[in-house]
Design a binder for these strands. Sequence first.
RNA 1: GGUCCAUUGGAGAAGCGGCUUAACUCAUUGCCCUCUCAAGGCAACAUUCACCGGUUCGAAUCCGGUAUGGAUCACCA
Length: 555
Amino acid sequence: MISNKELADLIFPEVHETIQDLEKRYPERNLPEGAEVTRFAPSPTGFLHTGSLFTAMVCRKVASQSGGVFYIRLEDTDTKREIAGSGEQLLTQLKLFNVVPDEGYLATHEEGNYGPYTQSKRADIYKVCIKHLIEQGRAYPDFCTPQELEEIRKKQEEQKLIPGYYGEFARDRFLTNEERVQKIKDGIPYVIRFKSNGNHLNKIPVHDLVRGDFEIAQNDQDIVILKGDGLPTYHFAHAVDDHFMRTTTVMRGEEWMPSLPIHIELFETLGFKKPNYAHLPVIMKVGEEGHRRKLSKRLDSEAAVSFFLEDGYPSEALIVYLMTIANSNFEEWLFEHDFRNIEEFKFSFDKMSLDGALFDLTKLQFFAREILGRKTKHEMRLMAESYSKEYNPKLFELINRDPLFFEEIMNIEREKENPRKDYYKFGGMEEIIGFFYNDIYEELVKQDLPWNEKFDKPMICKVLNELKKLGLDQEESEWFNQLKEIAGGLGFAPSGKLLKQEPDKYVGAVGDVAEMLRITLTGRKNAPNPYCVMRILGKQECDRRLNQMIEKLSK
RNA sequence: GGUCCAUUGGAGAAGCGGCUUAACUCAUUGCCCUCUCAAGGCAACAUUCACCGGUUCGAAUCCGGUAUGGAUCACCA
């Protein structure tokens, strides 16, 4: 008769530690009352997902506001799907959004007393726990091949039974230790499965920080806890890691809710205290077929955080937007505090909505406008620089021709009570401000210009010629009065209203004159007001552009 | 199909049995301001809270059912 202990020793001869040893190695954290220990546990399988950023942001927030700890654990147990370098990238991207961990996996190194924080380096820890379970008769080797599992599943489907490896269908649960030892000695590959004592007919009460109390069926599946490659599955690693890293609150996407019974049984049979759970809603999107679905990295560009980075959205805007999804009272708070000291906002789980919000790019752009509108010209330059350096060489080059000149462009109608809010991202900015730069301007005016057909070329020339008289040293209102005078001298009405009242008396209105000026100076119909543009370009350059345009039109 | 979760306008939502003629924000539309654009100001936008029943003097709010949507059922996390 072979005992469970002998079986465990045969499977893990190298493991001598016990769970008690681990408890000593990773003692309870010494934190003030109420401090939360949270964690973000990504898999290095690709770019940072917008939903992951959402979760990570909430984790950071909850830890910070409670005086706790936020750490990062790399869940790299799926070696097949792993993408080299993505762990590092995850960290740098989180940092761009100001989601910075206190400890854990930090890309270049690890920090903290509860490591290693990379699951592939924790094999010995998992083995201690699994060995313990085998000794207790709560885990066993399973020699089923994928085909055999498939057959079991088929049989269950035929009989309309719940699929899975459980109860009487858990074939190798009924092996004797003698048979197990023999198979192992024969070199038959196996996984380790957890032996469940549950019954899915029993309901157990669970508590979720965002969803409150509800009932859920007990787990009865003998889930795999150690895969054929010697690495643990998510479920098992979650129980072991979150216990020994002393996580107080587990936050994760709501897709994990159905597996909660597994985790509960695991925690209980390992003798671990359960953490609090918060299953966060997932961010949705309406798909082609008109149905809501989870934001998908494959289908939706906005599902990858890199999308916003590459297009130069202010990272603050995404965080603010995500926080409005996280807490319904945040938006009002934000306006009350005029977008200041956002970190002082108090997050709470009961202000979190239960179903996933549709991702709303327009609303994100609104916040981005508000945020960018509140930056100084210098801040704008720094943001534009750091974005363009990475993603937009054309813009980067423009900025660096003369950084102060760029700042002046950014400063158009900025330092006033209601600043312009026409930027919501830095991507494409080179198109918008290009006309300030002579070489781009020259290219622009080679194309057909959007002149008003009401006026012929000699008329336009006449106007432009007169506009050279415009001074630049006065206030904007004075400048505009001068423009009106010039326009009046040429037969234009001082306002659109007057023109409407007496259309026969005038050839047009000041607006028409201003438009000619604008087109000449910027090559476009829509641009910031010409006064600002002229101040930045300088009298000399303005005259040059006017003369050049007159010459062009005279041909 | 089983299990769990959800359901207030185009979107995010407040609402916790009478204070609701359903707050606030984005979007949309109209008007005003205005040299264009952006910004700004003012208005409009759910007679109704998925539906059907019930409880109650009274329900978006409580209960039951139906419908719809979502998540999940791996040696993936």
